[in-house]
Simulated assay, not measured.
Amino acid sequence: MATVILVRHGRTTANASGTLAGRLPGVRLDETGAAQAARAGERLAGLPLSAIVTSPLERCRQTAKAIAAAHPTATRVTTERGITECDYGAWQGRPLKELAKEKLWGLVQSQPSAAAFPDGESMSAMQARAVAAVRRLDAAVEAEHGPGAVWVAVSHGDIIKSVLADALGMHLDLFQRLHVDPASVSAIRYTGARPYVLATNSHAGDLSWVAPPRTRKRSRRADDAAVGGGAGPSVTP
């Protein structure tokens, strides 16, 4: 299938103050976050992006707009509720240092598959709807643009971690072992055989190697893992 570039939104005022923003309105990128989003856009400018999809929350839409502005072709930004932030319910808007004293905090850290936020959603439900949305969108992008297509999904830390965990075949209870910083780039290539995680939490460097050779055809062998690791992509310095 196609290749999805997962971009977390840039740093926000809530991130800087140690507040769990959740789905609260009006949470915007701070000055550092805006610069981070612009740099992410510069890194992605050399890729042939077929689509840019974003969580509907403002911080993600700002980041997606920066990515689109840096791209040489006018790539339209669309929103997708399936990759919006986890519904933290009564937890949103509260300081993290305060939440760390709650009994639920320990469960979120050690067994997130059993964690459900008061008046919000469970982490299992969060992962299920995010993974379903990304896989559905990826299939749609491939159907329209071919198996070599590359697209961007701008989302949130826990959402991206849960999608990466699914691609890695990790149980949700292990997803806290992954780290996804503001404006970082991760990449997954979905194929008929398995998903391939190409990058996680990447902050700098050329990304042109992420795009596979464009073709309307795909052989079964092309989806196989190379025994011994293979030769890797051909990138001209």
Rank of each mutant, 00 (worst) to 15 (best):
G46N: 12
P213V: 03
I5L: 15
P213N: 03
A45R: 09
A90K: 13
T79E: 12
G93A: 10
V134G: 03
R214L: 06
R135H: 03
A132R: 10
P213H: 14
H145P: 00
Q92L: 11
A115T: 10
M170N: 00
A116E: 07
R129A: 01
G106M: 11
M123I: 02
T78H: 13
R129K: 01
K65L: 09
V152A: 12
E80S: 12
R218D: 08
A115Y: 15
I67T: 06
L137S: 05
M170I: 05
A45G: 00
E102W: 07
T32L: 10
V152N: 10
P195K: 02
A38S: 14
R221L: 01
R28G: 02
G10V: 01
R221M: 06
I52K: 09
D224W: 10
V53M: 12
I52Y: 15
A130P: 00
A187E: 08
M1F: 03
T191D: 05
H156V: 03
P195Y: 02
F117C: 13
A16P: 01
S184L: 02
T19E: 05
Y88M: 02
S17W: 00
R194Y: 10
L207A: 03
K161G: 04
A226N: 15
R8K: 08
R39C: 00
D173K: 03
P72N: 07
S50M: 00
L44W: 11
T12P: 05
G106H: 13
V131D: 04
L47F: 11
I83Q: 09
S184I: 01
V185E: 02
A225M: 11
K161N: 12
S50Q: 02
R28M: 02
T75A: 08
R28A: 09
I83P: 01
V108S: 11
R8Y: 09
H71G: 05
T12Q: 14
A35P: 01
P237T: 09
V227Q: 10
S234F: 13
A165P: 00
D181T: 00
T215Q: 04
R81S: 14
P95Y: 14
R81P: 08
A35S: 10
Q92K: 06
A226I: 13
F175V: 04
A231T: 13
Q176P: 04
A149M: 03
I159N: 08
E31H: 12
A199T: 04
P72L: 07
G120F: 13
G93R: 08
L172V: 02
W91H: 09
R94S: 05
A38R: 15
R11G: 11
H171E: 12
S124Q: 14
E142P: 01
Q109G: 05
G229W: 12
S110A: 14
E58T: 10
D206N: 03
V7R: 05
Q111K: 15
A116F: 13
L137C: 00
S186H: 04
G230H: 11
A199Y: 02
P213L: 05
L6R: 01
L49W: 10
P25S: 14
P195W: 03
L29D: 12
